[in-house]
Design a protein around this nucleic acid. Sequence first.
DNA 1: CTCTTCCGACCGAGCGATCGCTCGGTTTAG
DNA 2: CTAAACCGAGCGATCGCTCGGTCGGAAGAG
Lengths: 199, 199
Amino acid sequence: MAIDTTPSSLTPLSPILEAAQECFVEQGYHGTSIRVIAARAGLSVPGLYHHYRSKQQMLQDVMKHAMTSLYRQSEDALAAAETDPLAQFNALVGCLVRFHAFERAPAFIAYSEIRSLDEEARREHIARRDAQQRLMDQVVEAGVAAGEFTTPHPTEASRAIVTMCTSVAQWYRMDGPLTPDELVDRYLAIARMTIGARG
Amino acid sequence: MAIDTTPSSLTPLSPILEAAQECFVEQGYHGTSIRVIAARAGLSVPGLYHHYRSKQQMLQDVMKHAMTSLYRQSEDALAAAETDPLAQFNALVGCLVRFHAFERAPAFIAYSEIRSLDEEARREHIARRDAQQRLMDQVVEAGVAAGEFTTPHPTEASRAIVTMCTSVAQWYRMDGPLTPDELVDRYLAIARMTIGARG
DNA sequence: CTCTTCCGACCGAGCGATCGCTCGGTTTAG
DNA sequence: CTAAACCGAGCGATCGCTCGGTCGGAAGAG
């Protein structure tokens, strides 16, 4: 029985999109030619176009996959946690940190290539981004309403916490000084201080 | 006597680099052709190349200007503040927030186009970025040593604070719901909670 | 003062290379 | 035999960049 070695990714990407994702991370969308995607995927250029309509569509699929993966994991984490505000908060922050630390490629693209999306796809992406932010907003709001969180600025604190977790994708290395567990523990502690969790 | 209307920018950019900067923000470096930079600057393509060696050099100049502006402002803010840790911290966080809110274009490019830099320029840029981070690290360290800041994770908290300030450039709008003063006040309050400032 | 020279600022046209993408096939699995 | 999977070659467009100039104003010569 095989062990799932990609704990954060619910559904795997196709090899082609995986290749495209890596190229987009390293060179950016406009800096990546379809020829290097094809070479990385072990295909010819027409081989690529047999599976995907355009380079733009590859980007859209990669970004949609990233956002829906994160959202689904967030929902699961919230559903699996106790219902009190602090437990919900810990679950969501932990999920955010893990995703951005262990799924760096999709996480990085999800916020660095927004401007490369066609207008309609960009609107959809931003809607997904806002929905993700709203999860945190609601958890923080609930904690403030329950008197568990003492921050005087729930909206801004919520955004600050999401962005500090998001940017973990920019610097975290699995082989760096912090183990995954240490990383999550420390960011949980920091995030709790940021919203002013009691205790 | 003229009033300086660009409070965050110590030295102005040339009109050409200003045009390049705007294009890079909107389309990204690889998504921007020199022809659109030229059009935006009101010049022909050879006109551009009379002043700058290459598109790459324009990017390097824009990014270097952004980083050195921020660093100089940070030094000035620290020098102008009282020497106690909390005052130094407030000065540095305020400076960071103001720069990323009011100088959105250079701030955005400074962290979104790193991968578009040539290898040597990228090394230099990252060195400047690290120096900027070190300013915050030192202030936080001093506060922890003085018993003013209670965070159990100074290094990670320092990075979290810098990144939450940095990402202000991604969403803040001058004509949005938050006035500049409100923005700075709230981020100061949030950052103080994040490092666990007493009182 | 005029005339000549010179130089920095600028541009029309276009170079070779590469871009995203497609045509007209062949190969391969069932 | 069919259909999905795949590819060599190459299309028109655009890329970064340059060639060979024009032009106006400052500087020097008479």
